[in-house]
Amino acid sequence: MSETAIPLRAPRSLRLPPAGLVLAWAVIGLVLAWAIAPGLFAWQSPLQGVSGSQLAEPSAAHWLGTDGLGRDMYARVVYGARESLLGACLAVTVGLSFGTLLGLVAGARGGLVDAAMMRLVDTLLAIPSLLLSLSVIILLGFGSINAAFAVGCVSIAHFARLSRTEVLRVRRAEYVEAAFGSGGRFGAVLWRHVLPNAMTSVLALAALQFGSAILALATLGFLGYGAPPPTPEWGLLIAEGRDFLASAWWLTCAPGVVVVLVVLSAERISRSIGARRT
């Protein structure tokens, strides 16, 4: 605040972003590239095994070794990105659009609508998320799209609750009152002030939920409710590797590490978005 302040170095905004954040974006970027053009990164087939090279240890030919059918693990992990990211995107889209709409309406309208919607959200939060998504899967049947949809449904409650809180916070802000005071109509004020100021936190949650969705999808895949074999899906890869736990550690290790890295990166990016909230 003081103007005598003697800046020694350039202010924060001009400096490079922290290394962790750069790394996080790099990981997400790489995995996205895997999902879009897996053929550019992996030369071997993810589905066709090479007989005679089953359960090979990681080597120059097979960076992450091969599985019980002689399929290249690296190729399977790279191709698996498509399945996981697509599923996570779908899940976040479902949660973000329905949840935000719900929260927005509840927060903006208030009263009975708000009370009813929030009781519904409470209810959804009272059911463990895994059981809720299993219920949706029973209804829709197994499969990767259905699993993604189920995971998305579960996150609706989280998005609804957060966006409602944010809308209420912004609505109470003096600048919103001032906007009404200068003759703003309800819609205009909502559009110009409430939405942009409430969205930052919601976006941060979306990034976080992207990571959680990948975790949840992997769990469903592991339990066998997601994509059917032989589709390369990260959760399924780990499940398949379980049979060779004693002999081939790389089968379970590699896909798990990839999942951890992607989820960590999503969390880091989410934090950087959240920090920008004013």
């Binding site: 990571g211 975790l215 992997a218 769990t219 592991f222 959760g235 780990i238 499940a239 590797g241 379980r242 736990l245 379970t252 290790c253 798990g256 999942v259 951890v260 890295l261 989820v263 960590l264 969390e267």
Partner: peptide, 10 residues
């Protein structure tokens, strides 16, 4: 960030 099932396996 660690999947529960994977942690168990590890």
């Amino acid at each position: 960030a660690v999947p529960v099932f994977w942690l168990g396996i590890m």
